[in-house]
Design a protein around this nucleic acid. Structure first.
Lengths: 213, 213
DNA sequence: GTCTAAGCGGAGTGATCGCTCCGTATAATG
DNA sequence: CATTATACGGAGCGATCACTCCGCTTAGAC
């Protein structure tokens, strides 16, 4: 376990600022052009040279990873907040809040779930807790599993990627539909849920890689 | 309106066969590697030279278009069949059948809906008819619109792209959830549906382009 | 003010891509 | 067969990408 956090040695003041400019520029450029935007463009928007980008982030993937870590960190915080919601409404609050947040980072969301940081597992555990709580209060059908919620995230991602530039709120309507489907009902869902082990494999194999195999 | 269908002049026998081999190879390669697989690889799998590929399809995009046209044609046929279903079950049958079919072509599905062929409009009109019929029989909630169904297609696409290689049937579970959400319910969905005009814009802007802007 | 480790910019590298060009081969016609 | 329009293969072109390398600059410690 290597220390990932900074603390190795404080960056020089200008370097630290450039690093932040690069992250900001990357968010903007990825959102505008998608993940195969060129690093040159990101450096240009950030107002620094390519060399500077590559000293701060040894590879394009490392840059994306830094962004992903930010998103995961915020998402975890949202889930923690939601856990404290009363009456089992935490799950719905989390789905709404995290989707709204993710809508601002749709350009590179495909990378979100297949990073092997333990942060992903943390999110999933928190979601599982939210699900249990929501069921306990009778808000969600008993046969819904937490793997179903992972599929729902991919589902929302599909809608986001398609609609975002033109109809930035369309995902809300789709989330309505998903939640309506999650309500308690007379009959169980016809098909079996994805097993947690399979979901792990899904996230590991998910073909969101930046570079070809 | 130019004639798009063949009939210009019959291809030489070997050429016609090579054309078919190329289409078959393209389906396989796109499914295995995604849409940015190289044309060289497709030609290799088809057992022909690159030159041959480019005489048959003047551009990579034209090759993809030919595949898309096949899918749309099959999808239209499925929708027509579904329209003849009794008791308003046509919509669900269509969603299941078309998803199962699309699962076999997930590699290039993003291209499906943003081609401006009138075939896309035909599909959407047929889906609208299926929706009306399903509502008439009380199977689907009254406040569901046909734009909601378009979003559902993007949703399924997102699930397909994430899960297909590892859990080829996972989409069925998600479709269960979507359909459960479409059932009649006491309360309307909280958010307004996407307007048809906006959906048109979504399909036109959808960033599934092969080449950069 | 001096010194130096740290940071900087961007031309250049190698790989890959879609696509073209042209000398060669062959199916179809009589 | 002979003829010819048609089809074929694949080396090569230009563009683009992620990434490296190195001479120059500068922040910050003394």
């Amino acid at each position: 376990m290597t220390k990932i956090t900074n603390a190795e040695r404080p960056l020089r003041k200008d370097a630290a600022q450039h690093r932040q400019q690069l992250l900001t520029a990357a968010v903007q450029v990825f959102n505008e052009q998608g993940m195969d935007a060129s690093v040159t463009e990101i450096a240009r928007v950030a107002g620094v040279g390519i060399g500077t980008l590559y000293r701060r982030f040894p590879t394009k993937e490392a840059l994306v990873d830094a962004l992903i870590r930010e998103i995961l960190s915020t998402t975890i915080q949202m889930a923690r907040d939601a856990v404290r919601s009363p009456d089992g409404v935490g799950l719905e609050r989390f789905l709404e809040a995290s989707s709204a947040y993710q809508a601002e980072h749709a350009g590179y969301l495909r990378r979100l779930w297949n990073t092997d940081h333990e942060m992903v597992k943390t999110v999933r555990q928190l979601i599982a807790r939210l699900l249990v709580d929501a069921k306990k209060h009778g808000l969600i059908r008993h046969d819904l599993t937490s793997t179903d919620l992972s599929l729902a995230m991919f589902s929302l991602l599909g809608v986001l990627e398609a609609t975002l530039p033109v109809a930035p709120d369309a995902w809300r309507r789709h989330l309505d539909l998903l939640i309506a489907g999650m309500r308690p009902a007379a009959a169980d869902l016809p098909h079996r849920a994805l097993s947690p082990a399979s979901l792990d494999k899904v996230l590991a194999t998910h073909k969101a890689s930046l570079r070809p195999e």
